[in-house]
Design a protein around this nucleic acid. Structure first.
Lengths: 190, 190
DNA sequence: TGTACATCAGTGAACGCGCGTTCACTGATGTAC
DNA sequence: TGTACATCAGTGAACGCGCGTTCACTGATGTAC
């Protein structure tokens, strides 16, 4: 049952996208290879034709997830009206829609403490992705010296990550919303 | 080999403290019952004399961890010189010592994304703990209306949690330090 | 262009392993008289 | 205070289960002539 090169590439892409979503939804540990492959419409045995280990899949799907987050930052920026750029990004990132959509959202918010314990390759991919996002945010402070803008971007991004994580953790919906809205308000004064 | 009530209570406390540290160090999933019990000087079978499940242990040890974090906030406040209260707390929380001490530090920073997926009892314990910390921070804004102070405290705490998480995740030591120091600096302007 | 053969994507059974949990048992502790 | 008995903290083997990974196999695809 060998597949054509094109089909093979499509399969790999499909597995990666499933993994990127399932890891963020259920957590890295809880998302098993067999489950992921089944969701992708395959049996588990074929997994190792595409990836040499689960760790490699984690690293690559982390890159995918950060990439689509960077895209959503850019989309938010393209739609911004009179707001500053950071406000446009924060409106999106700190929304209830993002809070309620682990699978499609920021991997740092949904997997932060699991990524800390991942292998070096994954953490390096994550670091690169984090810096890419920091750069996008830093560009939104055009009247600030570059180093200072980067510093502010570091703070803004990690604050947003912490806010979404905590808004998902707390059981009180009102508190959850307040964490998001207060952070949004504070970032507007940045 | 029944033990006296006092010994029993001490055993329970010992297991709880081991768990509170090991969960934060290795992650909830990776810290197994048998390992925890061995570290506490016992075999795994006796675990269920003290706790009805691993989930219950997670919830109780989360309370322990948050409690000791609240204590460290108070200790920092008692030592503050001319700084504001938030600065004293942030100096401690955003230190490299805290970053490098998962096992003895903030459970939200070390377990955030795992706690999001924990059972309701654990998330409720975590929520209560979060609010306790928020209250301590809110008291450091005496010239601010109570609701506004609470809002600022929500933002400050979740920003610190995000900062420590990200400072542990990134592979570049310089970047890691910058996340901590920039967040500290920004909170000083709160 | 047609044929023979090597390649390899995907299948599904099997592997070893560690997990949370259960259980029969032991023997010191606590209790009832 | 002393004795007989119930309790139960802790032991260690065993349970079922799901995990990541391996492997022999299948058969369509890609390649060499």
């Amino acid at each position: 049952m060998k597949k054509s090169r094109q089909e093979t590439a499509e399969t790999r892409r499909r597995v990666l996208n499933v993994a990127a979503a399932e890891f963020r939804r259920a957590g890295i540990n809880a998302a098993g290879i067999a489950d992921l492959m089944a969701t992708a419409g395959l049996t588990h045995g074929g997994f190792y034709r595409h990836f040499k280990s689960k760790d490699q899949l984690v690293a690559e799907s982390c890159a995918i997830a950060v990439g689509s987050l960077a895209d959503s930052f850019k989309t938010a920026l393209s739609k911004k009206g009179k707001h500053g750029g950071l406000e446009a990004i924060a409106d999106d990132y700190l929304s209830k829609r993002h809070r309620d959509d682990c699978a499609g959202g920021c991997p740092f918010a949904s997997l932060g403490s699991e990524l800390v314990r991942s292998d070096n390759a994954t953490r390096e991919v994550a670091t690169e992705g984090f810096l890419k996002l920091v750069d996008i945010i830093a560009e939104q402070f055009p009247r600030t010296r570059p180093e200072a803008a980067r510093g502010r971007a570091l703070v803004a991004l990690s604050a947003m990550i912490g806010a979404v994580t905590m808004s998902r953790l707390v059981t009180d919906p009102e508190l959850s919303g307040a964490i998001l809205s207060e952070t949004k308000e504070r970032l507007a004064k940045f």
